[in-house]
Design a protein around this nucleic acid. Sequence first.
DNA 1: CAGTGGTCTAGACCACACT
DNA 2: GTGTGGTCTAGACCACTGC
Lengths: 265, 265
Amino acid sequence: MITQPLPSSDSAAPASADVGALPTTPAFSPLYQQIKVLMLQSLQSGEWKPSAAIPSEIELAARYRVSQGTVRKAIDELAADNLLVRRQGKGTFVATHAEQHVQYRFLRLFPDSGDSNSEGPAQRQIIDCKRARASADIARALGLRQGDPVLQVRRVLSFAKVPTILEDLWLPGTPFKGLTAERLRDYDGPMYALFETEFGVRMVRAEEKIRAILPDAEQCDLLHIAAHTPLLSVERTAYTYNDIPMEMRRGLYLTDTHYYRNELN
Amino acid sequence: MITQPLPSSDSAAPASADVGALPTTPAFSPLYQQIKVLMLQSLQSGEWKPSAAIPSEIELAARYRVSQGTVRKAIDELAADNLLVRRQGKGTFVATHAEQHVQYRFLRLFPDSGDSNSEGPAQRQIIDCKRARASADIARALGLRQGDPVLQVRRVLSFAKVPTILEDLWLPGTPFKGLTAERLRDYDGPMYALFETEFGVRMVRAEEKIRAILPDAEQCDLLHIAAHTPLLSVERTAYTYNDIPMEMRRGLYLTDTHYYRNELN
DNA sequence: CAGTGGTCTAGACCACACT
DNA sequence: GTGTGGTCTAGACCACTGC
């Protein structure tokens, strides 16, 4: 059993012994939250790898010296955050961007008619992949210093052979050392799946800022569109564990036969 | 205690008696799901009104003849869906679009710099509010028949006196009978809050389809923008309880100093 | 069959808000 | 203090998967 900020020092009924209580932030943290943190460390450290099964609830309960119900609540929250996937009768697994029923988990562009499958998978075309130095904007977004090495990728995604998305993306140079256009080209699957298997970087969460813009001449050319065709500008920052930014991406989406879908709750 | 599709007929340890089992869909539904349905009915029927407290967990447990833990799980899910709000020490309350810390729960447009509060609340200007007949599109979106009476509203939202959003919205005529431009003008608060208090319609969930478009002359005029200014087209369908569509809305967002924000998980 | 996650219970105690 | 939601436990049993 763990006990960092406050009570629960022994078994069953913990006694509170607040001697010389700190005046600032009682910082009470329930047991299951502390366990959640420990489990996050196991995920982050690579002890539990993507798509692999984690120990059973009973094992985890023994390991952390808590009841099964408590680890259960920790797992529930991690599953709600899409970090784990529960499968009744089989076990609990580390979520992955590959071999997931929903490929392209973060792509919200859908065709006007038919589902995403009707037009088959996207065709990817790597335009460019080069080393560069972080601009002020990129550095800020990735938590780097200006001038730090970054990788810059440009690609076009087509649906049913129609160029639909033009993407520029920037990756911090250090974690992604060794990424080349060839490896991107050869890999068959979502880019984030490649990041997991080849570089051990798992994208967990992302934020997008969306605008309507008019493309410049070069962008028109790459997407085979006329000037004055309005496009969706989708600026994404993707994060790994602990909210560390690991990718900055700017996509231009052609929305004449597709739309960006969002659900509000 | 409830028992619709399968077991749990008595107390504590329910016995399973599958005699002449149906070949299709065992349709097992856990107790807490059944209770969730019952609670949804209480919400839908108006027994529990927006911003009011619902009975305590202990009361509900007695009412439904289950343990507190079971109603707890039902409440947890309803709270996760933003239908209820839990407040420790005070009770559980029916969620509302009014007096919520986050006004404009469904509006995802934010200023480039500063938070939403820095520019103060939006100025609303009702351009039009009239009776009409549902077009084929509107009828389909609202689950009506073509030609059914609808209310059509057009308004402009401005931030810091700059017109930023032009919205057209369609409401089914029957539930919203009596809605006029005056009432919209006079009401001080989110439109969805007015819908709750005046018409008993609670918007629970919405879907948006987003595109980049070029406005026509009239739209340019209303937003005080030049031709060829690209805009975000945000098409929203909003739903009440039980996924019943209750509003169709199309907004044009000026995104030169604002952006549409989305979070991906 | 054994092992996994999923449901349900009953009871104890803690944290918080109000009075 | 009383009442509310929040945490934690221990144990029983159910549903699903795969050997």
